[in-house]
Design a protein around this nucleic acid. Structure first.
Lengths: 163, 163
DNA sequence: GCAATAGTTGACTAAATTACTCGGAATTAG
DNA sequence: CTAATTCCGAGTAATTTAGTCAACTATTGC
């Protein structure tokens, strides 16, 4: 479990996707434009997200990405694990070949700490982020663009909650 | 708040220090040998830990480092923040210069998530890690045969960093 | 005072990772 | 067919990680 900007990008992109997927597949070009993340980088990230079965893709015109599960079934931990390679830096890589009586020190310390952080992030679903985001949006109504987006978000939430 | 191997090294080193400081200042050379972390790298890390006032140094023969506070007053979060540069990757760096109506999305998401993780790690003190470690040590008493493996293990660690 | 010990600092470097670009191939709607 | 879009691999600049090296300062023991 690492926490880097890579994981943040992925979560941001997934949140954007979650907020819009009722209108059919969402293109990476759109996410790129809205979130200020380069298209090519998104392609890499979504390649991993797809292989982790968090999203599904539709090729061709009108294609794009959709969530492979409901927003309630996708956690922040899922996303971060999908894009941040395992790496599992317990130094001995799970094997017990560290120092003699010190071998468990780094090992147990980080495996348990990792487990707890992972556990914590597993309980934060995309659904809760969407809700939070929706609350922010409606409380800061600015112009037409925001209004349109808010409406779309409401649909997105209603639609995916029903499923 | 990032979680990288750098922070892990620092926490490991601090734990080693906490476990031994009753016998006076602990040298970096000792920590280096026991934990398999290069001396020069430890120098860098402890420079930061000292500037963050988590440790105090004693120069000259018999010198080394001691904790600047009690083990109960030092948290894992303190250590990680001390060595992992701020970076604060909210993309807009705290300023509100992100995209128009999307600016708060990444921003709020990560500041709140960061805060929660930070909060969590703030509650894990060195004292609890020390207690945990002591329990492990006494329950898994090693014998002389194990001690000889130490040298070989250092090599194993150096090699497995690539993985 | 001298020598040994140990921290302090800064400059430097190799390797890895991050964040990204480019070019093209596969797929599919219209 | 053509355009839109994902898919894929190679390449790359910037950054970070992890570590080296050398010179320096402070302290202690003799």
């Amino acid at each position: 479990m690492r926490l880097t900007t890579k994981g943040r990008f992925a979560v941001t992109a997934m949140l954007d996707l979650a907020l819009r997927e009722t209108g059919g597949p969402v293109t990476l070009a759109g996410i790129s434009e809205r979130q200020g993340i380069s298209l090519s980088y998104l392609e890499q990230l979504f390649g991993k997200l797809r292989r982790a079965q968090l999203v599904e893709s539709v090729r061709g015109p009108g294609g794009g990405y959709t969530l492979a599960r409901t927003v309630a079934e996708i956690s922040v931990a899922d996303i971060i694990v999908a894009v941040d390679e395992p790496v599992d830096a317990t130094q001995c890589g799970g094997r017990e070949n560290c120092h003699d009586n010190h071998r468990c020190m780094t090992h147990d310390l980080w495996t348990s700490l990792n487990a707890t952080i992972f556990d914590y992030l597993s309980k934060i679903s995309l659904a809760s982020l969407v809700d939070n985001q929706k609350a922010k949006d409606t409380s800061v109504v600015q112009d037409q663009r925001t209004l349109r987006r808010t409406a779309a978000c409401s649909d997105a939430i209603a639609g995916s909650n029903a499923a």
